[in-house]
């Protein structure tokens, strides 16, 4: 057997999960989809004394619309994000990006909460949380708190969740009116972790000037990377080729710090970031209402 031994618990309510987490502290890990945790256990990179399997906690698996926001339970499977019409209605950028996550068999089991807490810099969902201004609900047996996505990620595979806290819900606002969006990435094969990827959002006013922009990158640093200066350079401008190329150059040269891997040098990743940003901004500007001027 490949993984090291562990004590197994399979609670069916959130309250039981929280009290087990409090009881076992550092020794316990949650087992959500297992699509990142189990490979790490098979390699024995992770050896956890206790696993708390949350696959039977039905109250954590939902996608609901509220008056003002979309609410997604931490145990919603990546596959459900891909096909639920509410995702497309509220936040089509997320719908566009989810099929890039791994393969269908992995998405059938992997969860939104697991991917966010795993905080892999190469993962799509953490990038989308920043791009979409998500709020994340953390809970322990004393109560709950809301964490803006900007305060959630804390470096490689690390978050600001406390040891006894778990992620229970993801709250997403509507993409604002007159806003275009695009997600693009480059991976060696469909379903592989991408070498580089970007989520782009641009808002336009009636005159076609950019009012708001966002550029967030994966595999570009030790977490999702928000290229604030490049995005800011677009605001107030008419989105033409020169303005877009300038922002793409700034983000790819100054704001990201890709580390390179066996498939790509950091220089190649920067090159990909530049090209993907140019394309994503053009696509987003067109979706915002034909806002791209040749």
């Amino acid at each position: 057997m490949k993984p090291a031994p562990f004590e197994y618990h399979v609670p069916d309510s959130l309250n039981q999960v929280l009290s087990l987490k409090r009881e076992h502290g550092e020794d316990a890990k949650l087992l959500a989809g297992g699509q990142s945790l189990v490979p790490a256990m098979n390699f024995r990179v992770i050896q956890s004394k206790v696993l708390i399997d949350i696959n039977r906690v039905e109250e954590l698996s939902y996608i609901n619309e509220d008056r003002k926001v979309l609410r997604i339970g931490a145990m919603a499977r990546e596959r459900h994000l891909e096909f639920d019409p509410l995702i497309d209605k509220w936040t089509p950028l997320l719908a566009e990006a989810v099929p890039f996550i791994a393969h269908p068999q992995i998405r059938n089991r992997g969860t939104i909460g697991g991917s966010i807490v795993n905080a892999d810099p190469a993962a799509e969902l953490p990038v989308l949380m920043l791009a979409l201004d998500a709020r994340l609900k953390a809970q322990n047996s004393d109560g709950e708190r809301w964490i803006p996505a900007t305060d959630f990620f804390d470096g490689m595979f690390t978050t600001t969740l406390a040891t006894d806290e778990i992620l229970v819900e993801i709250e997403l606002p509507h993409i604002p009116q007159n806003t275009g969006w695009s997600f693009m990435e480059m991976a060696p094969r469909a379903g592989d972790y991408a070498l580089m990827g970007v989520a782009a959002l641009v808002g336009l006013d009636e005159a076609g000037k950019c009012t708001r922009a966002k550029l967030v990158y994966l595999n570009a640093g030790d977490g999702p990377v928000d290229a604030k200066a490049a995005a800011k350079s677009l605001v107030g401008e008419t989105l033409n080729k020169k303005v877009i190329n300038h922002a793409a150059a700034h983000a790819s040269e100054k704001e990201i710090t890709p580390f390179g891997n066996i498939h790509a040098s950091p220089e190649f990743q920067r090159h990909l970031a530049k090209i993907l940003t140019q394309r994503a901004l053009v696509a987003a500007a067109i979706r915002a209402g034909e806002g791209y001027i040749q």
């Binding site: 087992l31 699509q35 390699f43 068999q105």
Partner: peptide
């Protein structure tokens, strides 16, 4: 570790990796 797909089975009718689940689950 979930990459090759040789171990794919159906769990309640959906395709999944049997190497990334524990039997107890």
């Amino acid at each position: 570790h979930g990459v090759c797909g040789a171990c794919t089975i159906l769990v309640n009718g959906e395709s999944m990796r049997s190497c990334l689940m524990f039997a107890v689950q």
